[in-house]
Design a binder for these strands. Structure first.
Lengths: 270, 270
DNA sequence: CGCGACCCTCCCCCGGGGAGAGGGTGCACA
DNA sequence: TGTGCACCCTCTCCCCGGGGGAGGGTCGCG
């Protein structure tokens, strides 16, 4: 309709509740180009048609959608594809919400007085050959990757000889990405798809068992670590987790049991 | 217990899953002071006792609690007060979640095809004297302030002569804070507490009625604005909202009716 | 013509890190 | 006693999405 109406940036700002500054930024970012720009003065002119666009941007920004993604959404011509991109972000929000919930729960548990003390045991573990899937993974992809790898392992390993486990490279936590290996012990490890035999080296492990929710697991890590240094040992190599009882066994998190083993060696006492 | 164990920053990093960089930053920020610092080399030494503290910090940061607030929480000696501070942040999270939900819903409505067109009317409004509460308010406090002011008005005005309304300074949107006035028309405006008589000047108003959820109201603002410029008018002064049907009348948002009036004056056509 | 409102660009600030440069230390092994 | 290497130090710059302000041009009304 009345697309002829032309607005200075200040008027447009009043009409959209976006600050003048922000409008200029959106112009620079290629998000919301003014209908025209006076080449002599640099004055921006907006058209009344752009108000709804500005409002969509406003809503997306309220959802913390990065400017680059907002641009992608606006540029995508097909409303179908657009809805897909938006849905993607809503999913991201959902995931973030889950993270938040988990952190809140964990914080609550952490602030509760006196967690029960942890039993730590030093155990010599011989080299074993297992069926494994391994890859370089980003820290935030760990869960998804794990689920896929474990499913593939389950499909390929017929007669597991024990509970599944994983090896976590320290770089995963320190640098945000690193090697992740998930395995099932079995007598004759097959080689199919991503699954292949791997020989885990013999190590001396400081072992403890974490009970409950995985979100709290670094509390157990911390206690294990404190035990390790208190006993004049040092950490060597990737941590090993063994899933004695996990979500695959029972939906009740309080029953989950995860063995954490940290390869250690003796150091001179300081 | 074994508080004697002393850890280099790298070891401590492995034990807490906080990066070395981040640990140094937390030191600089006064969040997590190392147990000791070698004055000659600057090497930081951590004690195993500090692991639980590091974990609490980790959790709080996962909840986006600013470093300054984390510091406050850790410094507060009384676990009671501490729990209070934490609860405060959880409340903030809750509020944020509400905002997010509202934005999602609004975005959904915005992306739905073809909102019904808006009827806009030009109306001369005479000066009126009303009972009002006014203050300078930050944009994010508007809702809370409004609720309080309206309650006070209700308590003081016995015989309202029409639905309540509000005046919103443009600075509220442009600069994040500005004057907010809420009023009830009544024959003999009292002066008690924050309530006092105010004479609203006569204006010509471009008026439309927004139906439904307030979260979508700037869509109606946008359409109203487009109409205003299309009719060679310009905006003058704070917008007036009149709550014909609101949450005080019915809990059903789809029935809410809010009149938006923008003071205008005629400009030369361009 | 003058004034005030408006607009322009440019630069620095915030927070919570990531990245890397450039240099010092601690320790094991030859 | 070197020498290599992992570790540690500080420093500066970058990211995002804006806010704040400086310094200067432009518009339109009286």
């Amino acid at each position: 309709m009345h697309s002829g109406a032309v607005l200075a940036i200040g008027e447009f700002s009043r009409l959209t509740h976006l600050s003048v500054r922000t409008l200029r930024r959106y112009h620079d970012a290629g998000l919301l180009e003014p209908a025209s720009v006076d080449p002599a003065t640099g004055y921006r002119s907006y058209s009344a048609d752009q108000i709804p666009v500005a409002q969509v941007i406003h809503r997306l920004r309220e959802l913390d959608v990065p400017l680059a993604d907002v641009r992608r959404i606006l540029r995508s011509p097909d409303p179908h594809a657009r809805a897909g991109l938006v849905a993607e972000h809503l999913q991201r929000l959902e995931a973030e919400l889950d993270r938040t919930r988990a952190a809140v729960a964990s914080l609550r548990r952490l602030l509760r007085p006196e967690p029960p003390p942890l039993d730590v045991e030093l155990r010599a573990v011989p080299a074993t050959t297992v069926a494994a899937v391994a890859d370089d993974v980003r820290h935030d992809e760990v869960l998804a990757w794990y689920a896929g790898a474990m499913a593939e392992l389950d499909a390929v390993v017929d007669e597991p000889a024990g509970p599944p486990g994983g090896l976590y490279d320290n770089a995963l936590f320190e640098e945000g990405r690193g090697r992740l290996l998930v395995y099932r012990p079995t007598d004759d490890p097959p080689r199919r798809g991503r699954v292949h035999p791997v020989t885990l080296p013999a190590v001396e492990l400081a072992v403890t068992t974490h009970v409950g929710e995985h979100d709290d697991i670094d509390v157990s890590y911390g206690e294990l670590g404190a035990w390790v240094v208190a006993n004049a040992l040092a950490v060597a190599g990737p941590v090993r987790e063994t899933y004695l009882v996990g979500p695959r066994d029972t939906p009740e998190p309080s029953a989950w049991r995860t063995e954490i083993g940290w390869p250690v060696f003796r150091v001179a006492p300081r």
